[in-house]
């Protein structure tokens, strides 16, 4: 627990001074922070609760669209973001209510289908979403004279988002709900025998995960300022979010964040070599992780640390 809080403190302090030290590298830092937040939010459902979703781009897209459509109707982002979170939770409730009767790969498959249907709606319902061309965010209000289009302001918002999601997961991992999540992940029948309602637990995990993801999606909308349904609802974004978390380490507090740092960093490093094919690195890394470190990077480190501690305790 203390380790996690220290980690969170380090993240906030490093984040606070980062724009002063590297003012030229803000865009990539925003990408790292957004992916860290999304992957950590994904992990609430995918890691702690064991339900692999390949449709989380839906919530990113939903958040971005709520902020963009809100901006065009004069609704400020600080109202639009909570609205996006609520809308995502409601969507997750309906989605989970219909699909949580399915388990394992069947659930993953149904998430792809639902995300595809949402993408088709975003493309075809032009009166609401601007259709296939997408929507622009032309103006944003300036609270206290802060320009929300500036990269520095967006960086701090993304930092607050990532830190907030990680803090949420630290809390969740300690409370009763966190233990329920893990009980359902390990064995649904046993959890049911212990008096839990597995579907209810999964639904709450999905709603929390969706709401958090949508907040990040709203920020992403502000960063992009131009939202295209093909990009924001793409299966690739869903896959990227899931893989970030899995490569970093599912069901760990810091795994998804570390995964985001590694994957966005690697994507950037190979951008010149592979051009648009930089998802190649995701493919290679996920294969390596599945074959050699199935717990993910942080998961493996934690396991080794725990084993060493037990060994030391056994000797003394």
């Amino acid at each position: 627990m203390t380790t996690h809080l220290v980690g969170l403190g380090v993240l906030v302090v490093v984040g606070a001074v980062y724009p002063l030290v590297f003012p030229g590298a803000l865009t990539i830092a925003i990408a790292v922070l957004l992916f860290a937040g999304w992957a950590t939010a994904w992990d609430v459902l995918g890691g702690w609760n064991g339900q692999v979703s390949l449709g989380h781009a839906s919530f990113v897209g939903l958040g971005a669209y709520v902020v963009a459509i809100g901006a065009s109707h004069g609704i400020a982002p600080w109202w639009a973001l909570p609205l996006a979170a609520v809308a995502a939770a409601v969507l997750a409730y309906g989605w989970g209510w219909t699909t949580f009767r399915l388990r394992g790969p069947y659930f993953s498959l149904s998430t792809i289908a639902v995300a595809e249907i949402l993408r088709l709606i975003a493309i075809n319902e032009g009166w609401l979403t601007g259709g296939a061309t997408g929507v622009f965010i032309a103006t944003l209000p300036e609270p206290f004279g802060i320009d929300l289009f500036s990269r520095t302001a967006q960086f701090y918002l993304a930092l607050a988002f990532a830190a907030g999601v990680i803090a949420t997961v630290i809390v969740v991992s300690r409370i009763r709900f966190g233990y329920q999540l893990r009980a359902v992940r390990e064995d649904e029948e046993a959890a049911m025998a212990a008096g839990l309602d597995p579907t209810g637990v999964k639904l709450r995990a999905f709603m929390l995960s969706a709401a958090l993801t949508a907040v990040g999606g709203g920020l992403y909308g502000m960063v992009l300022a131009f939202i295209e349904p093909h990009v924001i609802f793409s299966l690739l974004l869903s896959v990227q979010i899931a893989l970030t978390s899995i490569i970093g380490g599912r069901g760990t507090v810091w795994g998804p964040a570390v995964g985001a740092l590694i994957l966005v960093g690697a994507g950037e490093a190979f951008r010149t070599t592979f051009a648009q094919a930089n998802l190649l690195i995701y493919g290679v890394l996920i294969l390596a992780v599945v074959l050699f470190v199935p717990r993910g990077i942080v998961g493996e480190l934690v396991r080794r640390h725990v084993r060493r501690r037990y060994a030391r305790r056994a000797q003394s």
Binding site: V52, G104, P105, S108, V239, L243, I246, F274, A275, Q276, A277, N278, L279, L280, Y282, G283, V284, L285, I286, L287, V289, V290, L291, P294
Partner: peptide, 28 residues
């Protein structure tokens, strides 16, 4: 063959990785 006894998710993720590798290798 190396993950035949791992949880079924592993095979799903491994084939997802292969899918990304094939698609992007063609792109390259």
């Amino acid at each position: 063959a190396r993950i035949v006894d791992a949880p079924p998710e592993s095979a799903l993720l491994a084939t997802l990785g292969i899918s990304l590798i094939i698609g992007n290798a063609i792109l390259l």
